[in-house]
Nucleic acid binder design. Structure first.
Lengths: 133, 133
DNA sequence: CGGTATCCGAACCGATACTG
DNA sequence: CAGTATCGGTTCGGATACCG
């Protein structure tokens, strides 16, 4: 990996110019960092393989958004789509190798989210109380 | 931490009902998981403390979005705002303890993003080529 | 310097209806 | 079952102008 790809590069004086890493991270997160993508990845990481409607029920996502999200993730090479020509049709989704490598940071983020939801709620309550006064 | 908060809970039969963890993760990610928040956290994790316009230049974010994002993050207890009553005014932002604990999963995500941007671009190119045919 | 207020187009996203 | 198409409300987010 090139030097330009390591995050802790503190050569520039803090706020001089736009940090190139942020620009690139931004690009990737714009693609795979939205909430539905993250949740689809988490679900597939948990269950291995899921059908369309299983994901739909699992996530509480609308049919439209799931369809769009899945197509994006397939296009980005994070998940795989296997279609069985049966009647009624059956389509299974699972993680690719890259999707699996995405699993770890995503799961860490998800776990942090679970661990800190209450803390955030508390912080918000305190903040709002102060602001009202 | 309660049992209900662990992600790898495979008790339900895959797609039966909405998984409660996904619901909660969704809630937190809706708050602190947006792109600007993530990038602010990454920048503060890198530099420790930054002023408003340093962050602005660093991220390539509009003044409006930065202002909104910072206020949210302060409200959620992830960052701290210190104001110096000088002329011209000076305001410094840094991570709180909770923000610092958020740092690790976020940095992991950012690093993954950097490492895989090219892979994603390649996957997209391949996908689009196939679709055109 | 560090904001806030307003405007306005773009993107998001759920609801609904329809298809193979 | 696994989608696609269309519509309409909400949110996002940049641009601009203004303030302490």
């Amino acid at each position: 990996m090139a030097d330009a790809c390591t995050i802790p590069d503190e050569t520039s004086p803090a706020g001089s110019v736009q940090c190139p890493e942020c620009k690139r991270i931004n690009e990737v997160l714009a693609r795979v960092g939205d909430r539905w993508s993250v949740l689809v990845i988490i679900s597939l990481a948990r269950y291995g393989t899921l059908r369309f409607n299983e994901l739909k029920r699992n996530l509480g996502i609308s049919q439209r958004m799931l369809s769009l999200t899945l197509r994006q993730l397939v296009r980005d090479g994070l998940i795989e789509r296997e279609q069985f020509p049966t009647i009624p049709p059956k389509v299974e989704y699972s993680l690719t190798a890259m999707g699996t490598s995405f699993r770890e940071p995503v799961m860490a983020l998800g776990q942090w989210a679970l661990d800190n939801l209450d803390n955030i709620d508390d912080a918000r309550a305190r903040f709002d109380e102060v602001v009202e006064a």
